[in-house]
Design a protein around this nucleic acid. Structure first.
Lengths: 150, 150
DNA sequence: TAAGATTTAATCGTACACGATTTAAATTTA
DNA sequence: TAAATTTAAATCGTGTACGATTAAATCTTA
């Protein structure tokens, strides 16, 4: 009984793992012409909303630590998407600012993603329902993660 | 209108990205005492269902190529979870067999996961519904991935 | 049956992702 | 205010992930 449940087919964790990796692959393909990876694009999404966040703040939005973020931001800096600037008020903090390229390319990126992802034909209701459930689940998981801390 | 789709699209891809990474962290923590990573555990789930699959077959189940799988299987071999054996009938193929350790530890692993994930309080209906939606979405994404193939 | 195509793994280079440690700056407190 | 603590980034080591290439075995077909 327990064993039936523990097949790959029945694992919610695997369904999410799979869906996530398909998103990854799809977006990687769509973004490649721009010289962007999927996580880099997610970082741009956050910065398009609010420019000049600190590394810490950006990390909180993306659930990423500096071990992941610092090298990624440096790569994005090397490709002229963003610029890093250490705060003069508090020298521990590094703020991240969009570069002109990131503003200029925004519309083209959005247009291409819409064009290439729309054919998936995901219904609006499907979207909303799924997202609500995922966000609920994500909160529960995060809570459990924090209660198991260490 | 284009932006409406874009906004929704972003939220969904981000929700999945987040939920996936929370699952990752949670399972990583739960599996650490066994010296297993989350992807390694998924590989065990597949092999517990059907032992002796070839690398190719295992990769198909997990949606992983040899660039990911070969090194992972070698690490699992080094930790006595599995054994690799090149087929004598077709020397291109490598079959992967569970080692005694993988059978002996199975129940303990399953029990611990049940115990540590249960507190998330995911209802059965919620679970089923979400999985169905995710699998549907995953299929659509995979299809689109294949139609954009290079 | 020999040349060409296909299949299967392995390898390589790049890019996340994470926990742990280190370093330096800022804040708290004794 | 000096010492202890906290905070923010950077760095390090390990482990996925992926596309591209390589190499060897097998299969197809002219």
């Amino acid at each position: 009984m327990l064993d039936d449940f523990f097949t790959l087919e029945n694992q919610l964790c695997f369904s999410i793992y799979e869906a996530s990796s398909q998103f990854n692959k799809l977006y990687a393909k769509v973004l490649q012409p721009f010289g962007l990876t999927y996580p880099q694009y997610l970082a741009l999404l956050v910065l398009w909303e609010k420019d000049g966040l600190t590394a810490k703040e950006l990390g909180n939005r993306l659930n990423l630590g500096t071990g992941t973020l610092t090298p990624m931001i440096k790569r994005m800096e090397a490709n002229d998407w963003v610029r890093r600037e250490r705060s003069t008020v508090d020298e521990r903090k590094v703020s991240i600012y969009l570069q002109p390229k990131a503003l200029k390319e925004k519309q083209a990126i959005i247009t291409k993603i819409s064009a290439d992802v729309k054919p998936c034909n995901i219904e609006f209701e499907e979207y909303e329902e799924l997202m609500n459930q995922l966000n609920l689940l994500q909160k529960k998981l995060k809570q459990q993660n924090e209660s198991l801390r260490k």
